[in-house]
């Protein structure tokens, strides 16, 4: 198993390099010339152009520049923002990631604390109206993107029901303001988690040992908690990477609506300012987060499901 983990970690390295390469290539050939952008009003000056290009090391071959970038990235240096000369890309990300992580943390709690119980209920009430209702909600709800949910929640909860008044801005985990974005962000994955739990529990409920337990007269809930939940959690874990991806996408679309100074807002702002170094950094970091999530899933999987063999 150690061998498996080592191998798994080793695959991580070329994949990370490939991700950086793809991002760097797109950022290198895609947008306008960074040297001209830096020259500003003197951009037509060929002599200054060549001088600055040389100074920035941009007249060297692509591979050499990429190697430099990769090396710098490994040391946590993602370069400088084009838009603001006093801003390091790494610093901008380090300042916004904790905010998004806090929001994602709050959303994950909602996903787990609401999604799993609902899935359990649906499975235990299999083929009753409760099950049908919950299943139809998952199918309907998972089609609604966050930027549609946000105004709908705003119209219903703020305008019609008058339930929440402080919805914009950011004051950290312990404030009323996190409720709305956390709920909206949790909505889609929550339904997915519910569906997975239901499916997992249904499968286990049909296993012999559970049938025996039920026949022995243990109530449905006790069985559910003792035997079922542990086995049903496996498919949940395998899909953690998807949930993380969803949270990242959601934060891009959601944070700017609610004025949350997180990773998503940074991306949207850089997009508007065409700040490519920041966009490159956020893309690499976003991909790395998902890779790490998948890695953790694989490792935890080994401990949770002893049936899996790794040879």
């Amino acid at each position: 198993m150690t061998l498996y983990l080592v191998r798994r970690l080793l695959v991580f390295i070329p994949t990370f390099m490939a991700i950086t390469l793809i991002t760097y290539t797109l950022g290198f050939y895609g947008p306008g010339d960074p040297v001209r952008i830096r020259l500003g009003e003197n951009w037509h000056d060929e002599e200054a152009y060549l001088a600055l290009k040389h100074e920035l090391g941009l007249d060297r071959p692509f591979t050499e520049q990429f190697a430099d970038y990769l090396w710098a990235v490994l040391q946590g240096d993602f370069g400088e923002s084009i838009y603001r000369s006093d801003l390091q890309v790494g610093e901008a990300m380090a300042n916004t990631l904790p905010v998004s992580a806090t929001l994602a943390f709050a959303s994950s709690l909602v996903i787990i604390l609401v999604g799993i119980p609902l899935g359990l209920i649906a499975a235990l009430k299999h083929n009753t109206w409760i099950d049908y209702l919950l299943v139809s909600i998952t199918v309907l709800g998972s089609s609604i993107p966050v930027f549609v949910l946000a105004p709908i929640f705003m119209i219903v909860l703020v305008l019609k029901l008058n339930l929440i008044d402080k919805i914009y801005g950011w004051e950290g985990l312990f404030s009323q303001k996190i409720i709305m974005p956390a709920l909206i962000l949790a909505f889609g994955p929550l339904l997915g988690v519910m569906r997975l739990t239901r499916q997992g529990v249904l499968e286990v409920l049909n296993q012999d040992y559970v049938r025996t337990a039920r026949a022995k007269g243990l109530s449905g809930w006790v069985v559910a908690i003792r035997h079922v939940l542990r086995n049903a959690i496996t498919p949940l874990l395998t899909n953690m990477g998807l949930v993380v991806a969803f949270l990242i996408t959601g934060s891009i679309l959601l944070e700017s609506i609610f004025g949350i100074p997180g990773f998503g807002s940074l991306i949207v702002r850089s997009l508007r300012q065409r700040d490519y170094p920041i966009l490159m950094g956020t893309t690499i970091i976003g991909a790395s987060i998902i890779m790490v999530a998948n890695l953790i899933v694989d490792i935890v999987y080994v401990y949770i499901d002893p049936r899996v063999s790794y040879n």
Binding site: I22, R274, T283, G286
Partner: peptide
Amino acid sequence: DTILSFPHFLLAVFINATL
């Protein structure tokens, strides 16, 4: 696998902006 490890939407945003 590599492309799947990108957050899809983030990559689409980036490609859109650079292309």
